[in-house]
Design a protein around this nucleic acid. Structure first.
Lengths: 211, 211, 211, 211
DNA sequence: AATGAATGAGAGTTCATTCAT
DNA sequence: GATGAATGAACTCTCATTCAT
């Protein structure tokens, strides 16, 4: 049940990149945290940038998979689900999400493109949901593109401050954010039947396997 | 009217720290961008960290000054004003705000404390405004602390994507965000009389002098 | 039989610190003299100061070990032995002794304390020997503390000028200094039976292994 | 009565070179201690090395002048005088003598030659005195050259440890060293009539004017 | 007489990475 | 599979010195 060397490296990378940033983390820091020599790191990874990209890719892939796992015909339910998923992911995987959200700019252009396109794929789900809602008349918003960005930025922020030891449970957090989102889109705030508990399970499943 | 050396250094620092991050920016990069030798940099600054802290301090001070310049009895107007100010600042000073928002973690504890306390002072204005609105019954929100964080995160995001060459004018942007904010706080979205134009002037004035 | 890298570094440090002083010796000088890159130096040492401290510690430890290896009941013989040992060490290991004698002041307080305490341990042997001699009535001296300092300073000087190609053999040098010391302490100059040859062997043994 | 700028610079140089060594003292340290800007330093001195050489030259010149001022037909008296003078100088001008004794090796060859030749001139007085004593039969020593070196090294050491707040007065110190010297040269220790008080006056006179 | 501004060179140290073992 | 050894390049920062004002 002990972690494999590869997993230890990824865990170390996530923690350190999240805490000190990519440029603030040295190869020796990684090696020490992963309990191997710095030379041995290079058996398991390409360059330091490759390690970062791998971590990002895997995290985004999981988020995307989770989001795709969401069903629901009603756009309000789908949006509430996306928000809950996103918020819960950021609340329970703060290190991973910090890396994904904050370190894109250090990637070289080629690598960055691949990561960003994954992110775009994910954001497309939000875009579609919002469009569907507007088309169906359940959302009112004059600037859906901007609102989508505002929603995502708002939800991303959770990674920076949420603490399970704080006053809010994960359920309360997710529910509150879902309400905020619906309000932002001009819908009655409680008009969604998405079971937040369901989002927790999805997040939990997707992140069960050690990265 | 040409920039002084000190100003060139600050401009260079803001641009480079914003683009490549603090750790991603070398002292030689700064020197080159400021068109002096790297040794000369040290005539005008202490350490690289001092330079970062100076920039952050000045930016936050200006934001705080602008926010304090806002008047308005009605909490809805005050909130709309804060949002407009924040969003316009992030839209028109993207480099400065990126540095302030993203590089706090590289500061050493002592320096960080001073910067964070400035930020706290600023956020207190938001907290008070929201409280006032709830007390006055014009806002409805069960989690005002969380909502304040959500609001700020949402507005911070603007720095990452807004482009004056995009479809939205600054006025439209600010107005839209003010509406979103009011919606989030359970108020009728158009129920504010804050003149966005006024916020533009404040921002413009505060940032007129070269940093 | 070739020197290891670690030994080459120590030899280089001793030679250069002795010739040009600690501050006068650059890390690149050390690297060049040790025939490795300056980055590689840091595989084998901590900081430049650590390297200096290591060298000093080892040299003092050897001197101390040699001095403790001296026997002799008669204080005159013991003093003659200490003088011979000290002088021969300074004559045959001029670089090492110069470093130990001249570079203490560059050490940071913490490190300095450790080095000085080693030196104090060594000087205690001299203090005890002089006290014994006075108590036994074979030495006459009104200021034994000062005289001990004078003796040590006198013997330290040898490192600066002795040359094996000069007119004095090591035996003559050691014998002469032993006589001077006994004269200083008011004893008949030839009244000691310490075999200088014995001191040579001790010194030789202690310094046989490459530092 | 305040010091001139030139004097402040010299005092600063002496103090700092003595405390931290030539290489350990920066031009900015000197400027700060002399209370002028580092650029202004260069109005009063040539290079940093020139400053060191000037200080050394002046110190040695004063020592030489003092030594030449000594009279006395009897070699014992003359030797006692030289020792007293040397020891008192080192006890009362510790910073100056430390610089002169410890920093010769940082001088470039050309400059060093001039300094060393001054030193040689001074040491010649010792050599002659010892020779005279041997020729006159009042000294017995088989290795007068070595003994002269031993004497000087012994006396130089005083600069490192003498404190006016210690148990020895300057008179006691000088008298003790004179005795040690005479013992080393095989003369009866008290067989000298040189008034140590006289040496104090000479030293005092020579160093009255601020360097 | 005095100095702020400026700099090329170099300081000690760490960087990510490679490779022989 | 693992690592000690090695390095060129780069790091932040300080050096002694010059010069226009």
């Amino acid at each position: 049940m002990a972690l494999t060397t590869e997993q230890r490296i990824r865990r170390a990378a996530i923690k350190l990149f999240a805490d000190k940033g990519f440029h603030g983390t040295g190869i020796r820091d990684l090696a020490q945290a992963a309990k191997i020599s710095s030379a041995s790191l290079y058996h398991y990874m390409g360059t330091k940038e490759d390690l970062l990209a791998d971590v990002m890719r895997e995290c985004l892939a999981r988020l995307l998979r989770a989001a795709r796992g969401l069903t629901g015909e009603d756009p309000r339910d789908r949006l509430a689900g996306l928000v809950a998923l996103h918020v819960l992911t950021h609340a329970t995987q703060p290190a991973e999400t910090r890396v994904v959200d904050h370190e894109v700019h250090v990637l070289s252009p080629t690598v960055r493109r691949r990561i960003v396109s994954l992110r775009d794929e994910y954001e497309l789900l939000w875009t579609e949901t919002i469009s569907d809602g507007i088309r169906a008349g359940v959302f009112q918003d004059a600037e859906p593109v901007v609102t989508r960005l505002a929603l995502l930025d708002m939800c991303n922020g959770v990674t920076r401050w949420y603490s399970p030891r704080g006053p809010l449970s994960l359920e309360q957090l997710a529910t509150h954010y879902a309400r905020l989102a619906l309000r932002m889109l001009g819908g009655p705030e409680n008009d969604f039947s998405f079971p937040v508990q369901r989002a927790r399970e999805v997040v939990s499943t997707v992140w069960k396997r050690t990265l």
